[in-house]
Design a protein around this nucleic acid. Structure first.
Lengths: 169, 169
DNA sequence: TCTTGATTGACAGCATACTTACAATATGGA
DNA sequence: TCCATATTGTAAGTATGCTGTCAATCAAGA
């Protein structure tokens, strides 16, 4: 059947999933920044810290796959973390192109201390929903993000990325 | 009771609502851009066009409230739409500070023509879910965005913004 | 009327997020 | 060994998305 022309109204925007996702991302960042303002860390910088903490000696390319981050963007993020002395970059011995990432003592301490604020932020994002609905939303979002993984320009490659990561640092 | 220290793992990131919202926003933009690449319009530019179409003669400040957009950002967006000759800015007679926004003929045509691609993009974002789950997710996201409206730095003010918009253009 | 305070659009600056391109380096096969 | 190819980090360019600040303008009260 021929599809009828779509009416052009603001409701077509407000009810669209893309709009809702953009809006919720906006809100999530605002809440995170507010709860964590004492630490001067953005959500992205926080994710990078966690991932370097979990995989010390990871390189930038693998890090980008582990947090589904554009490689170019990540360069600037790491640069900022380095200038705040939270992260160190050391050249790899066996491959002169590679720079390995490590948390500094300050970085590890900051990460440890920021956790309660992050928890609070994450809880606040879903606070307005009933407890049961929170669970449903999280489940559906997890499914959707996973099933759409390849649609994004930077698919998450958590496992693959670590397989080839030598323990030698 | 004293809260136990949070373990620092990647799962703490992957399962966090903030991460899921960021990831889904990333995916949604990628899908939109892919479906609409023939029109060279971003999701934000599209939303601006719709809103100017719906409210011809709106000014930038009100437009920012109607699509929950930062005013500073919006300036650049409009500039780009103007340079593509999709939007016109005309100084208001009764207030020399204000510039009123109108679609050009090309802007209206582009908007009309892009609609099917936008529809396809919006559908693709939720495609991986079962039909019933799509409805549930949309409902919960709509609720959540609405209830969290004030938490964002640029709350949506759809109604307020239009109340004071004179018909005189 | 004059002046205080608010509004509007513009700008500068920082931080994602993506694209393409490039130099240095590595790797595998001829 | 040499060469085509791939990888790594980096940079330039575009586009959101936010923080400030500022001048011009307007509106409302003393």
């Amino acid at each position: 059947m021929p599809s009828k022309p779509t009416p052009i109204t603001m409701d077509a925007v407000y009810a669209a999933p893309g709009y809702l996702f953009r809006r919720m991302q906006q809100i999530a960042v605002a809440i995170f920044v507010e709860e964590c303002k004492a630490f001067d860390l953005t959500p992205v910088q926080y994710a990078a810290l966690v991932s370097i903490h979990t995989h010390p000696g990871i390189d930038a390319t693998r890090l980008s796959a582990v947090i589904a981050f554009d490689r170019s963007t990540l360069g600037n993020v790491i640069e900022r973390l380095e200038s705040k002395a939270l992260v160190e970059r050391k050249p790899a011995r066996e491959d002169k192109r590679v720079k390995l990432l490590y948390l500094t003592k300050a970085g590890a301490a900051t990460l440890r201390e920021i956790m309660p604020s992050v928890e609070r932020a994450q809880a606040r994002m879903l606070q307005p929903l009933k407890a049961a609905d929170r669970k449903v939303l999280l489940t559906l979002m997890t499914q959707l993000v996973d099933l759409n993984n390849e649609a994004s320009r930077v698919p998450l490659r958590a496992e693959d990325a670590l397989e080839h990561l030598g323990k030698s640092g």
